[in-house]
C-alpha cells in the first residue's frame, strides 16, 4: 500500500482511470512530457501515449472548448487549467456549453468531463496563481464542484469525478499538495460526490470548511480542545450539489457554526451555507453563524498573503464568540 501526498493521489487516480477506461484522456498545457507544472500528470504520457495525454496549444479557451467537444463525442476528458487564476477564459465554454449541454439537448448530448485546477493561496506564487474562486462555479447550474482536502479524498473524489456522467470542476488545494503523506490503496474505490465528510466529532461548535483551510480548521479544533471546547469539523468536499443535511445534523447537536473559507467573504460559498442555516436551522442555533474568510479584497501578493488567509487564531476567536453568545 502506497504512502502518497495529495498530488500523488491525483496522479494515481488519473493513471488508475486511464488504465481502466480507454475513453479517459488528459489534456492541458505541459501535461505531457513535463508531467504538469505541479507534476500531477507525471509519467502518464509515457504510459498512455501522446494520443491520450495531450499537450495542447497555450490557450485555455481551446482546452475548455475541445474538452466539451471530446466529451460530447464519447470521450471522458480530464482537462487541466494550470492555475485557478487562468480558468477565466474557460468559463464561457464551461457555463454556456459544458454545464447546459445535457439540458439544452434534452439529454441527447452530455459532457462527462472534469476540469482540474490547482487552487488557492499560500505557496508564495506570482500574481494570478493564488485565487480561491470556487463560488463562481457553484452558481452555475449543471456543474459539480469538488474540493478534496486529503490524499485519500483526492483519490476517491477524482475517480468519482471522472466516472460522473456530468461536468465536474475539481479544485486541488495546492498549498497542501505535499503537506503530508497518507496510506491510499490504489483500489479504484471512488468516494461519493454528494456528501460532506465529518473529520472530527464534537459537541460545542461546528466548524465547516473545505480545501486547504481544513488544515487550519483542524488545528483550531485542537486548540479549542485544549481549552475544553469540543469542535466538530466538517469538510464539505463537494460544494455543489451541497449535502446540507450533514451540516444541519451537526448544528442541531452543537447549536453553533463557524464557516471557514479562503475566498472573499461577500457571496462566497459560506454565504450559501449561512443562508441555509438561517432558513432551516434558525431554531437549532444558539448563536449567530460566524464566517472566517478571505477579505473582500484581492488576495495580496505573497508578502501579505498569509494575513489574508484565515488563520488558526481567527477561527478559534470566531468559535469562542459563538460560545460567548450563549
Amino acid at each position: 500500500m502506497a504512502q502518497v501526498t495529495l498530488i500523488e493521489a491525483v496522479t494515481m487516480a488519473l493513471a488508475h482511470e486511464m488504465a481502466r477506461d480507454p475513453s479517459v484522456v488528459v489534456l492541458g498545457e505541459d501535461v505531457g512530457v513535463n508531467g504538469g507544472v505541479f507534476r500531477a500528470t507525471v509519467g502518464l504520457q509515457e504510459k498512455f501515449g501522446e494520443l491520450r495525454v495531450i499537450d495542447t496549444p497555450l490557450d485555455e479557451t481551446t482546452i475548455a472548448g475541445v474538452t466539451v467537444g471530446l466529451a460530447a463525442q464519447g470521450m471522458k476528458p480530464v482537462a487541466e487549467a494550470q492555475f485557478e487564476g487562468f480558468i477565466y477564459p474557460m468559463m464561457e465554454q464551461i457555463a454556456c456549453h459544458a454545464a447546459r449541454m445535457r439540458n439544452r439537448t434534452r439529454g441527447r448530448l452530455s459532457v462527462p468531463a472534469v476540469w482540474r485546477a490547482p487552487w488557492g493561496g499560500g505557496i508564495h506564487a506570482p500574481e494570478h496563481h493564488s485565487e480561491a474562486n470556487e463560488h463562481l462555479f457553484t452558481n452555475i447550474p449543471g456543474l459539480r464542484v469538488v474540493l478534496p482536502s486529503s490524499p485519500s479524498r483526492a483519490y476517491g473524489l477524482l475517480l468519482a469525478a471522472i466516472r460522473d456522467p456530468d461536468p465536474v470542476i475539481f479544485f486541488e488545494p495546492k498549498r497542501i499538495y505535499r503537506q503530508y503523506k497518507e496510506e491510499v490503496p490504489d483500489d479504484g474505490e471512488a468516494l461519493p460526490l454528494d456528501v460532506c465528510f465529518v473529520l472530527r466529532d464534537g459537541t460545542d461548535v461546528t466548524l465547516v470548511t473545505w480545501g486547504a483551510q481544513v488544515k487550519e480548521t483542524l488545528e483550531a479544533a485542537d486548540a479549542l480542545a485544549a481549552e475544553g471546547i469540543s469542535a466538530e469539523v466538517i469538510d464539505v468536499a463537494t460544494l455543489k450539489p451541497l449535502d446540507f443535511d450533514t451540516i444541519h445534523e451537526s448544528v442541531k447537536k452543537t447549536g453553533r457554526c463557524v464557516i471557514v473559507h479562503e475566498a472573499p467573504r461577500t457571496a462566497g460559498f459560506g454565504a450559501e451555507i449561512a443562508a441555509r442555516l438561517a432558513e432551516q436551522a434558525m431554531y437549532d442555533l444558539l448563536a449567530p453563524v460566524e464566517r472566517v474568510t478571505g477579505y473582500d479584497t484581492h488576495i495580496p501578493l505573497f508578502r501579505l498573503e498569509m494575513k489574508y488567509l484565515p488563520s488558526v487564531e481567527r477561527i478559534v476567536a470566531a468559535a469562542k464568540r459563538t460560545l460567548a453568545a450563549s
Partner: peptide, 22 residues
C-alpha cells in the same frame, strides 16, 4: 445543436475531430 455564443462551436468540432483521431 445550434450554438448561440459566437464561435464557441468551432472548438466543439475540434474536440470531436480530436476524438475521431484518438
Amino acid at each position: 445543436a445550434w450554438s448561440v455564443p459566437i464561435g464557441t462551436q468551432c472548438l466543439h468540432a475540434a474536440g470531436a475531430a480530436l476524438a475521431f483521431k484518438i
